[in-house]
């Protein structure tokens, strides 16, 4: 069964991070939150695996 990947897996971490932040440029907090929600849903569908999604939700809830 697939597991949540928690080791580096994105080839271009700095580039991805910059793109993620840049898409929010000039947006109000409200529009940013809406964009994040759309992004989460798109990514979740890409993952698809319910167990991995639950692991990711739990991992996010546990940190911070």
């Amino acid at each position: 069964m697939a597991r949540l990947v928690t080791t580096p897996n994105i080839p271009d971490p700095d580039g991805f991070y910059a793109e993620l932040v840049a898409v929010h440029d000039g947006l109000s907090a409200e529009r940013s939150a809406a964009l994040n929600a759309r992004l989460i849903l798109l990514l979740a569908n890409q993952i698809g695996d319910r167990a991995v999604l639950s692991d990711a939700i739990a991992a996010a809830a546990k940190t911070g």
């Binding site: 939150a33 809406a34 929600a37 759309r38 989460i40 849903l41 798109l42 569908n45």
Partner: peptide
């Protein structure tokens, strides 16, 4: 926020 995101995406993408 999530509800509205689903509704916005649903218009364009079948997955939602």
């Amino acid at each position: 926020v999530f509800r509205d995101a689903v509704l916005q995406l649903a218009q364009h993408y079948p997955f939602a």
